[in-house]
Design a protein around this nucleic acid. Structure first.
Lengths: 343, 343
DNA sequence: TTGAAAGCGCTACCAA
DNA sequence: TTGGTAGCGCTTTCAA
């Protein structure tokens, strides 16, 4: 168990005071170039790596940020969004000396506990709040804890008390639905997510807007939960309707749901896109693995993750950060949509 | 900015010394029941939450463990294993007061740097080493850093200088290949992963063992990289061979590769399983989304994650931990395999 | 059983 | 420009 080299050793070897060593190593002003070099040299030869523990306590900073992913572990496996998002975050943190503390929680209650803990025990300097809910309890919570926070894809309407990163997908989705109308579809259904999520509503509104904008009534609405199985269930529900009520196009809240819908449709002998057109949202790789390939709205979780990480670090270090906008999501037309079937 | 309540406040309010407060709160002996109650009470009414920063420095422990996921961010999105594994880890850590520091790195060199950093700056108390490579540089590294570590699915042969969690999949895979032979297959190819990974070899050897065990020669070998695209490429290579050399069954190193292979086969007009049988490994959800559904070896990343977390915390706290074994992976026969085609 | 005090490794303030 | 020193919040001796 060889002793760790601390800043005391460095200062000693360089023949300067600890405070000077610290200033030199951190590039703070008030150190002559000569001592700076001596200190750097001593640190190098000793292989000095500052202890984040000491730094944290004294600097009153953890040099870490937190993210709590609320998801059943089973679902986590099937959710690819999450990987790219974290990948984006991690492209930014290390180069600024921060680390990501990741937690997974199964339900909203525990999620709140995790955030409370992260804030109260000062394990992190700030948190990223994704998958915001309507009246999300985490919003007042971070205020109460005085914990810097940034939000992901918050509703434009709800004014957050902290900055947010947004990638608009509503416009693309509206365009996509308009395309379906152009293809002749008049009964366009929607499989949404749980109603407590802000992004469920964002997508639902885009679907409604496009239809009413075209002078049509919004079609059937089925509430799902973002899973493959909820897409299957929606297919069972929608495709067994009488012919004159059955949708000819189904806009799904995300890709996984859409793929579930397509697979079940095919089992039911309903052709995609021959009998029913299907669209997703996210742009995950799975959409290109299945047949027909999935028409979707391509988002950029990696960029969003990058932007959120930058924003949060700025907020932590500067005390403020502006809202950020990632370039809007794009429609990607593939094989799962087609003209309305003649009857 | 209201002042945070520290142990000093608690001690003051309870009218005891800081050391007594600390002992009382941590359930250490040598405190009378009366003071213990007074301290607990004071802590509760003040809403005291110990700062992990202070604790870390003084206890010489970070109360955190590290995991570096080495993957291109693009690939991370498509890799579902990772989610369940982390989910399993996270089922264990919080209840024992630890947090997970997750890092993502694109290549082996940076991965090593990340581990070195985590160890040197004392941000974590131990690390989990997954996706071990042959002669993995991280193995001597954690020794050098005196950083507790546990390995995932290390080769039985290579003696690790630290404990490991294993889930045997070789037996199941051997059985699966034997099943193919029983179905009449004589030319059974293998699409492997990059040769630097231990699990690439584990699976490759299981494939070889099953064939030689049946008195056959191992079939064609194509080296891939675990991705969907490498499965597609393998299909291009294997399915364009002359009829008398073309494999009638293809054992893929993982599910993603297998699905890529199947999709490309279908594009090439080769029927699965009519013309060629295909198997995967992992048991990811994707295998049930595609048609035909994928025959595979079902692993339990969540359990492995749980076991690894427990093992690592035991190692950190007790100084030692036994090797752990998760129940073996199971063959899951679905629709992607069938009898050898008559020619 | 209790309390005082010495660190843990670093930052930051203030004199020199 | 330097060096001394007082914390940061907690754990852990060691006396009392």
């Amino acid at each position: 168990m060889k002793k760790r080299v601390t800043i005391v050793d460095v200062a000693e070897r360089a023949g300067v005071a600890i405070s000077s060593a610290s200033a030199a190593l951190n590039g703070r002003p008030g150190v002559s170039e000569a001592t700076r070099l001596r200190v750097r040299d001593a640190a190098d030869t000793l292989g000095f790596v500052p202890s984040v523990r000491g730094r944290s306590l004294s600097a009153r900073r953890a040099f870490a940020v937190g993210l709590v992913v609320q998801r059943e572990v089973e679902v986590l496996e099937a959710d690819p969004f999450f990987g790219a998002f974290i990948g984006g975050i991690e492209e930014v943190l290390p180069e600024r000396g921060y680390a990501l503390v990741l937690q997974v929680s199964a339900d909203a209650h525990r999620t709140e506990l995790r955030y409370r803990e992260l804030g109260a025990n000062r394990r992190v300097d700030g948190v990223i709040l994704n998958e915001l809910q309507v009246d999300d309890p985490r919003i007042p919570l971070v205020g109460e804890l005085e914990l810097p926070a940034v939000g992901i894809n918050a509703d434009e309407a709800t004014m957050l008390p902290f900055p947010a990163v947004r990638q608009d997908g509503g416009e693309a989705l509206t365009r996509l639905v308009a395309t379906l109308v152009t293809l002749g579809h008049r009964r366009v259904a929607h499989v949404s997510g749980p109603l407590e999520y802000v992004h469920t509503w964002q997508r639902r509104r885009a679907w409604e807007r496009a239809l009413t904008g075209a002078g049509l009534r919004p079609g059937r609405l089925v509430v799902g939960d973002f899973t493959f199985d909820s897409g299957r269930a929606a297919a069972d529900e929608l495709l067994t309707l009488p012919a004159d009520e059955r949708p000819t196009a189904v806009v799904c809240v995300n890709d996984l749901t859409a793929v579930g819908f397509m697979m079940r449709a095919q089992e039911l002998g309903v052709s995609v896109p021959g009998d029913v057109s299907v669209t997703g949202y996210d742009g995950i790789a799975l959409g290109t693995y299945v047949r027909p390939t999935l028409t979707t709205v391509q988002t950029s979780p990696r960029r969003v993750g990058r932007a959120a990480a930058r924003q949060l670090l700025d907020l932590i270090e500067e005390g403020a950060a502006p809202d950020a906008e990632v370039e809007p999501a794009q429609v990607v037309v593939r094989d799962s949509i087609g003209p309305v079937p003649r009857n």
